[in-house]
């Protein structure tokens, strides 16, 4: 199935250049294409919300399959719009409450399933036996033991750093929290580096579009 047209590529390329012009300075050309982008995105949202959610999940079961209780969704969904009436705006909180309730009701399951395995795996063997070394690992028993000890020390230190329930006065606690903060910097360094990498990847994709798809280079 064909997805692109020459005219479309030209509009896409000119728009890309217009949006990139922001890096020089704010200008009318950028503003115009920024508005076009928002308009298209909003139009796409209308299309996709109907096509992907409301039509298959609400309209079809209600009208085609005769499941009339789905009309309840219209009643509850309609309450969102009371927000525009000062007199009735409190009713929008019923619908918002239902959504918040549905989301918060899942928190117990999410917490249990997400964190229990992690807590279990945090208790690593500090003296590793030969049988504990995973197949294919290059680590020796000593190396893996040191890694596990370091893992646990960092975990405890960073948790200590985030313990705000009491004042950090004890020397052990302050030392541990300070180490935790330093270890956090390693994690943030990794995140910083990878953030830069992500942004570069996005730029490269656009440059490749301009070079290859539009101008036919490369």
């Amino acid at each position: 199935m064909v997805w692109t047209t020459t005219l479309g590529v030209w509009v896409g390329a000119i728009g890309t250049l217009a949006l990139f012009s922001l890096i020089y300075r704010e200008n009318r050309f950028y503003r115009l294409f920024e508005h076009l982008f928002i308009g298209l995105a909003a139009g796409f949202l209308i299309k996709s919300t109907w096509d992907e959610t409301l039509y298959p999940q609400w309209w079809t079961p209600m009208v085609k399959d005769g499941q009339w209780p789905w009309i309840l969704a219209l009643g509850l969904g309609g309450l969102f719009y009371t927000i525009y009436s000062k007199k009735h705006s409190w009713m929008s909180r019923i619908s918002i409450g239902v959504l918040l309730g549905l989301l918060s009701g899942q928190i117990f399951q999410t917490t249990a399933n997400e964190f229990i395995p992690q807590i279990q795996r945090s208790f690593k063997p500090l003296v590793v036996q030969a049988a504990d070394i995973p197949q294919g690992s290059q680590l020796t028993q000593l190396g893996m033991s040191l890694n596990n000890i370091l893992f646990m020390v960092i975990l405890v230190c960073v948790i200590t750093y985030f313990l705000f329930s009491f004042e950090h006065k004890n020397k052990v606690i302050t030392g541990s929290a300070r180490t935790g903060r330093l270890m956090l910097m390693f994690a943030f360094g990794a995140i910083f580096g990878s953030t830069v990498m992500a942004r570069m990847a996005l730029l490269i994709d656009r440059v490749w579009f301009l070079m290859h798809t539009w101008l036919g280079l490369g």
Binding site: R121, A187, T195, M197, A198, A201
Partner: peptide, 26 residues
């Protein structure tokens, strides 16, 4: 995940909740 998110996933790789990962475009 995108590279931005990748570092935070190592903990799930360690716990075995995620089996493998592609670190962004790399």
């Amino acid at each position: 995940p995108t590279s931005v998110m990748a570092p935070e996933l190592y903990t799930y790789l360690d716990s075995g909740q995620i089996a493998g990962m592609m670190f962004g475009i790399k």
